[in-house]
Structures are given as C-alpha cells and as structure tokens.
Nucleic acid binder design. Structure first.
Lengths: 191, 191
DNA sequence: ATAGAATCGGGGCGTGCGTTCCGGTTAGTA
DNA sequence: TACTAACCGGAACGCACGCCCCGATTCTAT
C-alpha cells in the first residue's frame, strides 16, 4: 500500500492531485450531490480520468476524508508539541474553526451512509490515537480534568463541528467555545 | 392556513397522517434518499396519494420537520412550566435524547440544502421564542449564568444533537451532557 | 528520435428516482 | 338509496447521474 509497483506517470499524478483538490472544494461547498462529470469539468479533465484514479464515487470520498484527516492530525501534533498544556484546547479550536469549511463535507457525507470507522479504520485509529495522546499530555499538565477520556473529546469535537450549521457564521461557535473550555478545565470544587 | 375551506375527507385525512408518520420514521431511520414510492408502499397507499398531499418531496420534508419541531416545543413548554429553574436543562436533555432518533432527519436533510430558517420561518420563530422564554426563566431562577443568550443555547443544542453521530450510541452524549450543564451553571468565581 | 505503453477525453448505456396522469373507487349528501 | 365530487392507485414519462469503453494523445525508456 505504501510502495507502488510503478511511480505513476507525471501527468497522471498531476491530474490525480488536481481532481482530489477540486473534489474537496466542490463537495465541501456544494454537497456530495455534485455529479462526477462536474468535478471532472472543473478539474479540466474527462470523466474517465476521474474514474481511473477513483474507481467509484465512494472511493473519491474516502480519499478526500483520509487526506483532510491526516492534515488535521499533523497540525494538531505540531500544536501539542509547542505547548502540551494548551495542545488539546488548540486542537479543539482548530477543528472547530476548520469545521466552517469541512462541515460541508460532514453534512455531505452524512446522508450517504458513509461510516468513517468502517471505511477508513486506519485513519480513524490514527485520529483517535492522536486525541488520546494530546489529551493525556494536557491532563498531566493539569489543564484538563482527569475524568474525561478520548471518546468524550471526540464527542465534543463532533458537536463543535456541527455548531457551524447555521448561516456558516462562526460567531456562534466562538461564543460557545469558551463555555466548552470552562467545562473541560479542572474544577477546584467538584459537585 | 388555520381554517381550511373544506375539512378534508375522512380517508384523505387518515392517509395524510399515515404518510407523514411513515415518512418520518423511514427518513429518520434510513435517510432522505429513500424513494417516495417506497414511502407510499410502506404507508399502504399509491405514490399518487403521497404527491397529492405533498406536491413535492421537499414539501414532505417541511411537513415532517414542522411537525417534530412543534411537538418538541410543546414538551419543552410543559417541562419548563413544571420547574422553571430546571426547564432549560430539561429542554437541552430532551433535545439531546430525541436527537438519537431525529438525528437521522438532521443528517438526511443536511445534504439536501434544506434551510430551516428560510423554509419554515414561522416554526423557527416559535422555536427560538420558546428557547428565549425558557432561558429567561432559568436565568431568573439563578440556575443558568446570565451572560448566555438564546442563540448560544441554540448553538449548543445543535452540537448536542450532532453528538449522536457515531454509532447511534447515546452513551457518548450522556457522558458529555453533565459537562455542558456544568458550563452553563452560574460560576461563583469568574475567570 | 522512435517505439511502445499507459493515460486522456467524452460520448453512450443502463438504472433509479421524482413527478404526472387518468380510469376506477369510495366517502359524503339529499 | 342514489348521485356526485373528491380521492385512490399504479403505470408511464423524462431526466439526471454513475459508470464503461475505445480511439486519440502524451509520456518514458532505449
């Protein structure tokens, strides 16, 4: 999977990258209902080319999601390395911000029965592993209460992502984010 | 809109209600991609009957959402009347719980470009009005911090709803809900 | 430079869905 | 009970989209 038998011809690689980029932007902005022909047209290639690189529409979805997920994980790792105590909060905020654009994807794939865990188990594991790692660092630094686990964080991330749903106005999320942060911070007096 | 020129024949009313119910359950469980023919089949009527009551698929969506929204508002009002201080929390929890089933709707409509505010402005106003009302009661009772507004609550509701997105397991939401509640409760020491 | 092979492009096929239409049927009324 | 108007069912239409195919084109290795 990591090493290809042959390194893919130059123009083919170029086209593949271009299709992936255009598809990401288009689906995020206009939903998954956009036809492949339209993706091809905007990428300046024929429909056949798209289908050669991504044999089915679903496989194109998978490639997009895997790509985005990998990027966000890398950025989160960098943030956490810079400041372990703030890392998790930075991760949450990053995801919430990114959510403004990626929400299009989330919504688009929601209706198609696309299940991340079973479609891309590897990417899912990488993501959850990173969450657990960064969470542990924050808890050791004492900035996040110890009784939350990685699954809770994931749940919160999903919620934060969804909060962009109305009007694409990120103002709402920005107002609510401090509340979430306060909820996660260690409480001196526990109720 | 409230008074019809003629009160709709008995069988027609029966069929309409039946289609609405079946459509709600089906879309919630299997997504908005289910064909109208299938809805009709399950409701035990012909496709023509569905289209007579709901001239387009979108109008069927609207009727379902308006129905659900109205029901949830009524229940929220009852909860708040019973205990003004707990009303808002009960409302939040109700929505979060209901989200487990209604999430199907949310996701189903997310991909279709369905916008509540512009599709059903009246229902939206009723909903937001109720939120504002119940929030005000809770704030007067001193159970919710005074610096949050109705829009913030709506944002949180959207997030809570979305938290069911993975595995339909309501366990995740139940673990996170107390965090949200703690964040909304009045803070004795403000940071 | 040239041969050979992989890639490109876009026209075309099949399918499935939203919507319409009309002959048969059934609920209300006198 | 008989008449009428509204309602019912499901066959049929048109369209849009996913996917396949093949002649023309472009890249790489010798």
């Amino acid at each position: 999977m990591t090493d290809r038998p042959r390194p893919l011809r130059a123009d083919a690689a170029r086209n593949r990258a271009r299709v992936l980029q255009v598809a990401y932007e288009t689906f995020a902005a206009e939903g998954a209902a956009v036809p492949i022909d339209e993706i091809a047209r905007r990428a300046g290639v024929g429909a056949g080319t798209v289908y050669r690189h991504f044999p089915t529409k679903e496989s194109l979805f998978q490639a997009i999601v895997a790509d985005r997920l990998h990027q966000v994980v890398e950025r989160a790792r960098a943030l956490a390395a810079a400041d372990p105590g703030e890392g998790l909060y930075a991760f949450l905020f990053l995801l919430a911000e990114q959510g403004a654009t990626d929400l299009g994807l989330t919504e688009a794939f929601a209706g198609t029965g696309f299940d991340l865990t079973e479609a891309l188990p590897e990417a899912e594991r990488e993501f959850m592993g990173t969450v657990a790692e960064i969470l542990a660092q924050a808890q050791q630094a004492g900035t996040v209460r110890p009784d939350v686990d990685a699954a809770d964080i994931k749940t919160l991330m999903v919620g934060l992502q969804a909060m962009h749903r109305f009007r694409g106005d990120s103002e709402h999320m920005r107002r609510v984010y401090p509340l979430i942060r306060a909820a996660l911070a260690v409480q001196k007096a526990e109720g």
